[in-house]
Amino acid sequence: MSIDIFLNLTVRGLTTGAIYALVGMGIVLILQTTNVMNFAQGDTGMFITYLAFFMITTAKVPYSLVLILAIAAGAVVGLLVERFMMRSVRSRSHLSLIMLTLGLSLLFQGLAAFLFNTEPRLFPPLVSGDPIKIGPVILGRQDIVVLLAAIVTFGILYLFLYRTKQGAAARSISQDEYAARVLGIPTPSIYMLIWAIGSAMAGLAALLIVPRFSLEPSFMGLVQVKAFTAIVLGGMGSVFGAAVGGLIIGVVENLVAYQFPAIKDSFMLIVIVIVLLVLPQGLFGKGQQRRL
């Protein structure tokens, strides 16, 4: 492998990894505060992307407005899910909560297939034009947008979690929900806020990454599996871990796909088994989480 190819693969891997990071950060944000593993993250975004598609192609709404609406739609979905589904079963086992999100994901997939059929559609990118050449590295414009979006999202999440009162409340809930309630933290509204932010990220992520795939009811499936792999690698329960884990998975995946194409899609299983055997707390985990 020449150094040019290596650089190209690595940088492109970073842009792929940014996709997993975007999805993974939303999942981890919800997971660490509300203790729900949201398997509907991908399909929430998928369904919103369908709505966005028709807004852009049929109703000719400007792209930037659609982007904002998609984020808002995600937030609304998150609010509704938390208020009308999660809240009433919170006291039950985490299995029930996982099952609810699986049901939600099936519902979105069924609705998308039923309303819009399963034919793959091409989704226009946010920015189009020739790929940009930086030294030996060639990058598509949309890929750069995704990478920047992941970085900006991470920055915003960091500021939210560490510089706002609500963020501190969310972090304290993830440490000890009972103590947080005793200290007067309004946990229901923090839960709703976190679900809104997390699901808003689902809308944003899906809309930004769909031009790399094609719009069909299953397009977020594999992305979500890899986002979960990234979360395990990053140490489940840290937004930073999910972001870095996503980037690493993206880079390794690209290099592996070039050198050993045969294990391209199964390597994440290998990654998970190795991580669980060697480094169960992940790269940035703080040991076993107590609340699970």
Binding site: V89, G103, L106, L107, Q109, G110
Partner: peptide
Amino acid sequence: FLSTVIFGLSIIGSVM
């Protein structure tokens, strides 16, 4: 695909 919608709703309904 209508059955997929019903399945999704059934899961949510069952759990809740």
